Computed example of a mutant assay.
Amino acid sequence: MNIEEFREYCISKKGITEEFPFDEKTLVFKVMGKMFALVALERLPSQVNLKCDPERAIALREEYDGDVIPGYHMSKVHWNTVLLGNLPPKLILDLVDHSHDLVVSKFTKKLKAEFDALG
């Protein structure tokens, strides 16, 4: 999977914005203003940071040693860095969904109502 395919999948989800809050090289995807994915546009091989349940994060790092690592410049407990070119696209899409769903699950009632109203 390449960066453009990753981006297309992320922005196809409900309530998504993309921005460059840190610098012009780090693309951030947010759902209702909350980060769920970051892409280092100039890093090779291509890699992304995704939020992950702590237990699942450890299991993924063990199973995909070197291709899923603790989140670069992020909480090592809650974020993984995922190398896009080395993993099956279906797994990457599943990890995007997992990250997105984790963030949505932590919404306040008000934000969840706004999110649900989007359709």
Rank of each mutant, 00 (worst) to 15 (best):
D94I: 02
N2I: 11
F36G: 06
N49T: 12
C10F: 07
A113R: 07
E114A: 11
I11A: 11
T81Q: 00
L84P: 02
F115N: 04
M32P: 09
D116V: 06
K14Y: 02
S75P: 06
E62Y: 08
T108R: 10
P70T: 12
G15L: 06
K13H: 03
K112N: 04
A37S: 11
P70H: 08
C52N: 14
P89A: 06
P54H: 09
K110T: 13
F6P: 10
I3T: 13
D101C: 02
A37D: 10
P45M: 00
F115K: 01
I16Y: 03
K34L: 14
K109V: 01
V28E: 08
L95R: 05
A57M: 11
K112G: 01
L87R: 00
V39T: 07
N2T: 08
A113E: 11
Y9P: 02
K110V: 10
L111A: 09
E18V: 13
C52D: 13
K109N: 00
F6Q: 08
L50Y: 05
K76C: 13
F29H: 07
F36P: 05
L87F: 04
E8H: 10
D94G: 04
K13W: 03
E63F: 07
V68D: 02
H100W: 12
A59I: 15
T81M: 04
D53A: 12
D94P: 01
E18M: 14
L91R: 02
S75L: 10
E4S: 14
E5I: 09
V104A: 08
E4W: 13
G15R: 03
P88Q: 03
N80A: 06
K76V: 12
Y9T: 02
I3P: 06
R43P: 00
L27F: 15
V104T: 11
R43S: 04
L91P: 01
L38R: 09
P45L: 00
E4Q: 15
D67C: 03
L102Y: 10
D65T: 12
F20Q: 13
S99F: 02
V31A: 07
E55P: 12
I69L: 08
R7S: 13
K13P: 00
G71K: 01
F20Y: 15
L50T: 05
Y72V: 00
E42G: 04
Y64K: 01
T17G: 15
I92S: 00
N80D: 10
E5H: 12
N2H: 11
H98F: 10
V103Y: 11
K106C: 13
K112Q: 07
L38E: 06
F36H: 09
Q47F: 08
L102W: 10
L50E: 06
M1V: 05
E19N: 15
S99A: 12
E24Y: 14
L44W: 14
I69T: 09
L102Q: 13
N80Q: 08
P54E: 14
K51D: 08
F22V: 03
S12E: 04
L102T: 08
I58P: 10
Q47L: 05
A40K: 07
E42L: 11
G66M: 05
L27T: 13
L93V: 00
N80M: 06
F6I: 08
Y72C: 00
K51P: 06
R56T: 14
